[in-house]
Nucleic acid binder design. Structure first.
Lengths: 197, 197, 197, 197
DNA sequence: TCGTAAGCGAGACGGTACGTCGAGTCTTGCT
DNA sequence: AGCAAGACTCGACGTACCGTCTCGCTTACGA
């Protein structure tokens, strides 16, 4: 992923970095993110919670941001689900995702990162591939539907995926309220049928 | 706007608050937001840029956040447009908004605020009405379409609005790329027709 | 706003520095120096003992050293004493000084500063005048003795002063033992008579 | 010198300690002491300069301090000189010492150690015998003078030695200027004759 | 001749203090 | 009263060393 593998190519001298400390740091980061959100996350707090010196953190991550990105990367994304029917696929994937979202640090981490990346090229670079790979299963489901003839060949799948998850993004960023799993059904139906149906 | 009017309920002794300083502060806030984003915005920076003492800022806003929210509130939102046709209404509104978005501080401010509100109840409360009122013209256009019979009476207009702006939100937060006005046409068409069209 | 008001150049804008904080810092420095010596003195400790933020310290002193120099400057030096007789003058001055030395932070501060100045030009510059002014009363007493005819006109007073305080310096730096007031009598006698007497 | 001999009492298994590393460490210590003084000396710096691991240093010396003391112990002290005449003995010894002083690390190391020992009992204990043994030749010369009848039997030789080197100590610690060999003649003469001569 | 035991350079470990910066508050003298 | 200026306390930042602890070698000895 990034420069975090404990034994860098060929290099071997010196005591190797502790995989245990690494994980403790990531765990502590996620815990604190859940407890207080991005703005309450301090490197000192992470160090203390993980039982680790600050230097051990800064040795691995240049700053708070890449640390959060990596912690974020360990969180679950969409989980593919192939029922042979697009509507069901989407409803299950989104439903499951929302559950995960509401029970993990995801809901705390994602908006912060998304907001911050705008002003932070480094974060942007780090975040890009993580963000993209998370959408993958969604695109896959749409491709399968296209192959089955459920969807026109002309449809831009990227745009289609955006349309499907769009209402979630809007709710997330502009409405702030918790995202309820019951929203998923009508949401997917509307996206499939269109407003004018 | 909010509780910032310079002459509070009848009280009058002493020197009145300077309207000029007020505006200078708001302007400086927006400028700095554009330049460095949320995380680089400091009250000290605002004070210095506005040629104002810090106390003058804290006398009007309880903290950094309400200041940013008010500055944000001064930025343009959707501008209503009634062509008698939903597709055209939406395309024009979204197209115009994107233009505004790309030429003002909006693109810098919005994601930051949206990201931060999640961990900050105070901000959330402040942000809510501002955020809602910005969506208003969109909902209005959808209502008109419903009255004209273009849209079914059963449709949840909130959800419909989310579907329409959803792809913009996704592009904004997860793809990070600038939002191009050309995207608007296909986006609206797809939302109106639905994926299965 | 202001306009053309001729501000007193440099001196007056803003809240003035707290004389109280200043003194609290100096006091805390001396206390901690007495308790743990130079190497145990931390700026953080001083701040906490003085009930002051670190920034308040760094606003006044560029680093630990100038702070110590100033604290040192507040400690008493030789106190002039004119009995009309060189031997008595010297014995009293040295005796009194040793008392002061053994009951204040002086014994902790002086050797550290003396040792450090060798590698620290800034400190050297700061320390020079303080150090010199402390010797002054000694030189004065020697001058009076010269005027009375007790001492030859040919004698280099600087060297003479060095000879008189020399044994103290030696005891201080190389023997480390506490300096006993009883040493003063024989010391001065020997310096006046010379080894070969 | 101390407990640093590489082959400890009989035990022998394993690789013996490298005498070469030992010396490289001592040399590096002295070099760095000359360059930046006590406060700038870091064990990490010594290790790096000596091309040695930190553990190799800590295996031999319990901490920074004993290392410095041992390095200091390797520097030259007074060198005895017996001309049959006290004045000449002293002038030569002091003169030679000053030369050595000005051309070796001594001038950098001595003040730092002397200053630090005051706050550091461990250092003090370590430093004591080293410091004392360096004065030895001076005391010897004074004893010889006493035996020859040049000096009264009543004189306290310790005090006499202090008087002789006193001005050097003063110049060193309080005047900071380099010590010039020309000072030696008048200095010794004055100490021998006394101020009142 | 080989295993064992210690030493080796390198560098990560948990800590503590550094000197800096910003938040939000307070205190000057002016307007 | 409000104002610009700037000092105040507090607390996090990212860095540098301390003294300790592995790593994977290397080097001698004694079985």
């Amino acid at each position: 992923m990034s420069g975090t593998s404990p034994n860098n190519s060929g290099s071997s001298a010196g005591r190797p970095r502790s995989e245990q400390a690494h994980q403790a740091i990531l765990d502590a980061t996620l815990e604190l993110l859940v407890e207080g959100g991005y703005s309450a996350l301090t490197v000192e707090g992470v160090a203390s919670r993980a039982g680790v010196g600050k230097a051990t953190i800064y040795r691995r991550w240049a700053s708070k941001l890449p640390l959060i990105v990596e912690a974020f990367g360990g969180l679950p994304g969409f989980e593919d689900c192939d029922t042979g029917n697009l509507s069901d696929d989407l409803k299950r994937m989104l439903g499951r995702y929302l559950e995960v979202f509401n029970t993990t640090a995801l809901s705390a981490v994602l908006p912060s990162l998304a907001g911050e990346r705008f002003h932070n090229d480094e974060l942007s670079t780090l975040f890009e591939p993580v963000s993209m790979s998370r959408r993958r299963p969604l695109i896959d489901a749409l491709e399968r539907a296209q192959e089955r003839g459920e969807l026109s060949r002309e449809i831009d799948l990227e745009l289609a995926a955006d349309l499907v998850v769009g209402p979630i993004a809007v709710a997330l960023f502009f409405k702030g309220g918790r995202l309820k799993p019951e929203m998923v059904g009508p949401m997917v139906d509307l996206a499939l049928r269109g407003l004018r149906a």
